[in-house]
């Protein structure tokens, strides 16, 4: 994750190896690229062709051009997409709010503890995703301390945390936090502290210096972090199933259930293709707006 950001655009090494042997890079690339082509690109085509199939029997489908699969999927499940994007969007904003000060703290205030703190920030994510989410179920449970306290304040619509959208968003925020923290950290860490000193020397108030120097310089990290959080969060369904109520299931769950349990392959394929298309459109327009296209 950090590595994506540490890539400087257009950087080409001047290392003294293998000059003039035009075929070497292709030999090096071939096995990996072949694997990605066969098991990533080709499957996308199978996905599209599956999504256009026609049902001819109970578990039987034949190749066709059923555009109706798409229109049906959109009309039936548009609210699921909206719900997923809403939850993922809120979780991304929350993750940014939590991770920015944290990354700032590690990059500028932690001194010799920097590496240790970085390990600590990532460490919780070594324990399995499912086990972590299940632990949140235990933490937020109805007779748990946190729920008693928050419900006591009387601000919750359903008077509980578990099995509500709040728990789903909290789970998403937590589980994808390192995808936000690491890119933010790596862009903050690369800021030359002398630039901030210069702002101070020029009589910028600390906050003005932060707003006009630190924030703009950390934008690549913000863009990468929000993308790396939003994309997996929008497709996730584990948090929604383990922490949410029956109405909080996200689109990922519908896709999985349609594909694996109901064996309704065309609808499931159409749903996943729509998800991919929507995310790509969102990402492209966001990246364009943020003006950091070289990131891709």
């Amino acid at each position: 994750m950090v590595a994506i950001l540490s890539k400087k655009p257009g950087e080409i090494s001047t290392a003294p190896k293998a000059r003039g042997r035009k075929i070497t890079p292709y030999i090096l690339l071939f096995p990996g690229m072949a694997w990605l082509t066969v098991f990533f690109i080709v499957p996308l085509f199978s996905l599209v062709s599956t999504s256009l199939m026609q049902r001819v029997g109970i578990d039987e489908f034949s190749p066709a051009l059923q555009i109706a699969n798409y229109t049906d999927a959109i009309t039936t499940y548009s609210d699921k997409y909206l719900l997923s994007f809403k939850y993922a969007g809120i979780a991304t904003v929350l993750a940014l709010a939590i991770a920015y000060p944290l990354a700032y703290f590690i990059a500028f205030k932690s001194g010799k503890w920097k590496n240790f703190l970085l390990v600590l920030v990532v460490a919780p994510f070594f324990a399995s995703f499912l086990i972590r989410t299940y632990a949140w179920q235990t933490i937020l449970t109805d007779d748990g301390v946190i729920n008693q306290f928050v419900a006591g304040l009387g601000i919750l619509p359903e008077n509980r945390l578990l099995a509500t959208p709040i728990a789903v968003v909290a789970g998403l925020t937590y589980n994808f936090l390192p995808f936000m923290t690491l890119p933010l950290y790596s862009s903050l860490d690369r800021i030359d502290p002398r630039l901030i000193e210069a702002a101070n020397d020029l009589y910028a108030k600390p906050f003005a210096g932060f707003r006009k120097v630190t924030v703009p310089l950390s934008m690549p990290g913000v863009v990468a972090g929000t993308l790396l959080t939003f994309i997996p969060a929008a497709g996730d369904y584990i948090n929604a199933v383990l922490l949410g109520g029956p109405n909080d299931k996200m689109i990922g769950y519908t896709i999985q259930a349609r594909f694996v349990q109901m064996r309704d392959y065309p609808t499931a394929a159409a749903l996943s293709f729509i998800l991919l298309a929507m995310i790509l459109i969102l990402v492209m327009s966001y990246v364009r707006k943020a003006g950091t296209e070289e990131l891709l």
Partner: peptide, 24 residues
């Protein structure tokens, strides 16, 4: 681009498209 795309694709889509391939 081919390196970047799988990381920018939601896991459900990766899983679903591979399943579509294996089935076909």
């Amino acid at each position: 681009l081919l390196i970047f795309l799988p990381m920018a694709t939601p896991e459900v889509v990766l899983g679903a498209s591979l399943l579509a391939l294996f089935l076909s």
